[in-house]
Amino acid sequence: MASKWFVVKRLLLLVPVLLGVATLVFAVLHISPGDPARVMAGQRASQEQVEMVRQEIGLSDPIWVQYGRFLADTAQLKLGESYVLRPNQSVASILKNSIPTTIELAVYGQLIGILLGLPLGVISAIKQDSITDHITRIGALTGISVPIFWSGPIVIILFSVTLGIFPTNGRIAQQYFLSDTWLFFGHELPRTGLITLDTLLLARYDAFVSAVRHLVLPASVIGFYSMALISRMMRSSMLEVVRQDYIRTARAKGQGERITFLKHGLKNAFIPVITVIGIQFGTLLGGAVLTETVFGIEGIGMILVDAIDVGDYPVVQGTVLVFALLFTLVNLGVDITYSYLDPRIQQ
């Protein structure tokens, strides 16, 4: 069957991309100006100690040996240990704690964007060149022009500092967690890591409310941006579809405008928008770096920034790898979904 082949082909195409990504990540450690052995041994270590560390972590081996080892380790998700940011904690465990944080934020942001962006785009297209259309379009263009690291501070100043409605920092009020141990009121957390889900599973509704209140501002800022992009795409896709012959046919056979639009128009216009939503999700993951910094949320974005700041290379490698992997997988999912919705793409 053709569609199976498409999936297989698409999966095979992943191999060179992932290899390239891994090579780039390897380069982070080996081309960068800092000396990892020196960073690990500490500034006051003697030259001998630094050399010992270098031997220990295999940095004195030939580069292709190191490259091979890196690929093998990475394939088994052995990502090494942090040596500055959280000394002796494994990169994998740091990532395990922070990935759900980033994903949770991106999912809520994207949900807001979809729920607002799709209807706005459709209305804008149906009432093309009306005042509603103009306002939506200008609003959408403004939305994609405003960087998150400006809209973020503004909503904080407005809703948090001035009006005091929402909290600004972190994911949940301080009283609800004990730092890294994640002991929640003495229970071990039923850890999905998605804090809104975890609090619900524990039936701690007060904690849930606190988590939601912490999410409102960052998710809205992300949602506004994503709404702008989705409504633009939905509008132009809808306008494109409306010009197609099958819409004329539907009208010619006497079908009502509403059904023509909803059944034939919307369904087909939705296909390219799915791509945008997928790509958009990847961009949101990248934007996490900024949102998390502005709102003080400890996801992979913030960890990456901190790790680059202090030169913690294993952590930099791990986070970059995870970001690229998530982005690639989302794109893969989008491509496959797309191929099922629009079989023409497989040719």
């Binding site: 780039l24 990847g282 680059i308 290379y313 930099v316 970059v320 690639t328």
Partner: peptide, 15 residues
């Protein structure tokens, strides 16, 4: 294969 800002960050980590 990378979101743009992320690739930029990875490259900044290299350079």
């Amino acid at each position: 294969a990378f979101p743009s800002l992320l690739l930029a960050l990875a490259l900044v980590a290299i350079f």
